[in-house]
Design a protein around this nucleic acid. Structure first.
Lengths: 221, 221
DNA sequence: GCAAAAGTGTTCCAGATACACCCATGT
DNA sequence: ACATGGGTGTATCTGGAACACTTTTGC
């Protein structure tokens, strides 16, 4: 038992894990195995260990659910409404992560939970205040496309300009002119040709590009 | 005494309170009366009550230190490094607040603490990781000037365009062209003439303006 | 009349937008 | 040869930046 003179809230991290799959923006949900909200879908998350920094806790959740390390992770917001958990006062520091589409490897569900990728358009009812967390993460992501290179975090090591444009179009839900998109993205000087091409299908091969500073999200103007 | 099966961290809110005074961007610090860091300057803050939302806790701190309510307050970031407090694990949800220059009324120091406004250029050594919190709040403020109307939160009910320009110049540390500034700020359609003028000194009187949607920070451009 | 801040318009440039045709490949 | 997606250039528009003189007042 742990004793304190003043009441202490519980502290968790929850992670909104985004990826692009099947031409859709998707996020990872797990089905809750225990009460409360048993059987409801929820964000992966859990209690922060006493000797673990907040981001480390979020990365641990991420690794446990997806087996992936070293991806983009950013603190989103801290949710602490008094009644957000029916058991006790629980504060959650929410993070969001972006996973390149080629890295998706769902772990064998560690504790018999169901795990799944859901399109943002077709989310099931979520536990706790997780819908609000998802909404905020989505807003943040869309906003960051405009003034940063965050979208590159969805790309595998090598990719074509068309694939990159697809990512922008999927997240922003708007079509872009191919010539203008290419001019714009190349002018950022954040990606470079690998020198290789990808031949696939009955058409001209596409040049492959790589991110010059992988892992770094640059603020663009 | 409060008992839990798992260890729980302590939870505080700290508030970076900005205002413009003497043509400088200043923030409010209090001198710590007890250990640790006794005698060092620190951000106002304190433990979140068990039945109090996070933002409510931050507003309470703000009211206790400044006597002011109803000002702009935004969550900044949550700091939770394992060793940020030498006593026990303490997570702090940091907020920042913007106070119009005419509203500054320092409370009689509630618990015999010294309280003071400090220019960002001349901060004393701060307790805990508060310097890092201040730096992040400052960055956020500067960034938000570019894409929101957050600067209006520093203005009193009625103000001149020159006063508003002063606020921008002080925070951004750069001089602006008066004609371009006026064109730009009026095109936002977020402020309107009151119809009054302010006569002061041996020169042409200045028209007074008010914010159309006070309290609301609009995303611009 | 003079000092001091308020008020006001035009030109220029850069970055964003709109837009259509040829290229390389597999079948 | 044809269907498919990849690749490229120019004209136009628009918002930001640069820039100087007149107005109103108090003394």
């Amino acid at each position: 038992m742990y004793q304190y003179e003043h009441p202490h809230p519980a502290l968790t991290t929850d992670v909104v894990i985004f990826t692009i799959r099947d031409k859709q923006l998707k996020l990872l949900l797990i089905m809750r195995a225990g009460e409360p909200y048993k059987g409801k879908w929820a964000l992966p998350g859990g209690f922060v260990q006493q000797d673990e920094d907040l981001e480390a806790g979020a990365r641990r959740e991420l690794a446990e659910e997806t087996g992936i390390a070293g991806v983009y992770l950013e603190q989103l917001y801290t949710f602490g409404a008094v009644d957000r958990d029916p058991r006790e006062r629980v504060i959650t520091v929410a993070y969001y992560a972006l996973i390149p589409s080629d890295k998706i490897v769902l772990q064998a569900a560690t504790d018999a939970e169901a795990v799944g990728w859901f399109s943002l358009d077709e989310l099931p009812e979520l536990a706790f205040d997780h819908q609000g967390i998802v909404d905020m993460a989505h807003e943040r992501l869309v906003a960051k496309l405009d003034y940063s290179t965050i979208a590159f975090q969805f790309m595998p090591e090598e990719f074509t300009l068309s694939e990159l444009q697809d990512v922008y179009e999927i997240i922003l839900r708007e079509e872009m002119d191919r010539r203008n998109f290419r001019k714009w993205v190349l002018a950022l000087e954040q990606i470079e040709e690998t020198g290789e091409e990808r031949r696939e299908g009955a058409h001209r091969p596409a040049k492959l590009y790589r991110v010059i500073h992988p892992g770094k999200v640059e603020i663009i103007k």
